[in-house]
């Protein structure tokens, strides 16, 4: 089934499936391609008979660039805002965020809830810093300043509750352990800006990165001098990479070439790409795997469209 939803007047920046509800989806969007103007948070239900229904809509003063659901409270989620703020929303309440933190001095471009120690989340900003937060605290718990350029992605390890990774415009990936004040590992992962990363859910030393250099690389952190695999195919910068929660060898990516691609990193030979979804008509910024429906992807793009579909290559039993 392929269903679509139009985020009219708002360009998609990121989306995430709920970790608690099978068909609930949150989408972070911005007016005017995120360059100037308002933002809008959509909470959607993709399971209805008529396709996708809107459950909630929240408006913000500046664009929304990233989103993460709480791992503790099934109704709460956090957004990364263009004005440097981070907002905590409760989907049972209308209109306003229940918490607002404003410490970053430039656009916040990533937020991610800790998957193991579920009382913290992390944020990355164009002010080059990373901040660690506890939703119960009025201030950030820790600030990390090592990157020399915008931080585009911050992702907790799904295996160890104190470890997260960051990707930056300075061409570096850094691995952090909240028990230490400095990064514990640095990878010169690409020869250009790195816009996205994700952890493999099945191999605790494996991460995937996506870069402005058009490539996606798979890394084994125990052997950081060179990538395990380099996936070529995107014709412009890779904006987002996501590892499948169901299969350790499947990676989805979205990019400035308006495509969504699915890769099987274990496929023999050079041809690792197993699916090309080219129905978006503008930059694709968001892609996420549904945790409950194996193979189901949601994507959002600057064409104001959200797509929910199961790529043929990921139909159960196909791989």
């Amino acid at each position: 089934m392929f269903v679509k939803f139009r985020t009219e007047g708002y360009n998609g920046y990121d989306l995430q499936w709920s970790p608690f509800f099978e068909s609930k989806l949150a989408v972070a969007t911005s007016a005017n391609f995120g360059l100037v103007g308002n933002g809008r948070l959509f909470i959607l239900n993709a399971g209805g008979p008529a396709g996708i229904d809107v459950e909630r809509v929240y408006d913000t003063q500046d664009g929304l660039f990233d989103i993460t659901w709480s791992e503790v409270n099934e109704n709460q989620l956090v957004t990364a805002n263009g004005d440097g703020s981070i907002k905590l929303w409760d989907a049972t309440l209308a209109d306003f965020p229940i918490q607002n933190w404003h410490e970053h001095t430039r656009e916040v471009f990533s937020v991610h809830w800790n998957l193991v120690n579920k009382d913290t989340f992390v944020s990355g900003s164009w002010d080059h810093s990373i901040k660690l937060w506890n939703p119960q605290h009025p201030r950030s718990i820790q600030t990390y300043k090592e990157h020399g350029h915008c931080v585009y992605s911050t992702q907790w390890s799904p295996h160890t509750g104190t470890i997260f990774a960051s990707a930056s415009g300075d061409h570096l990936v850094k691995i952090w352990d909240t028990k230490a004040p400095r990064s514990v590992q640095t990878l010169r992962a690409h020869a250009n800006e790195i816009l996205s990363l994700d952890w493999n859910k099945y191999a605790d030393n494996t991460i995937v990165t996506g870069s402005v250099d058009h490539t996606i690389k798979v890394w084994d952190l125990r052997r950081p001098d060179r990538e395990v695999i380099c996936l070529r195919g995107h014709e412009y910068a890779v904006r987002k990479v996501k590892c499948s929660p169901h299969q350790g060898n499947i990676v989805a990516s979205a990019g400035y070439d308006m495509s969504v691609r699915v890769w099987d990193v274990a496929a023999p030979g050079e041809m690792k790409m197993v699916e090309l979804h080219d129905l978006h008509t503008e930059f694709v910024f968001g892609v996420d795997f549904n945790l409950y429906v194996e193979g189901q992807l949601a994507t959002c793009a600057w064409d104001e469209m959200v797509h929910v579909f199961v790529p043929p290559a990921l139909m159960p039993g196909r791989r």
Binding site: H171, H190, V212, H214, C230
Partner: peptide, 22 residues
């Protein structure tokens, strides 16, 4: 700037001013 970058991976031209492990 994300759009104008040339792919470095598909060619052997190493970039001046950008360090890469390769």
């Amino acid at each position: 700037s994300h759009l104008t970058a040339q792919p470095t991976a598909s060619s052997n031209v190493t970039r001046i001013g950008a360090k890469s492990p390769d």
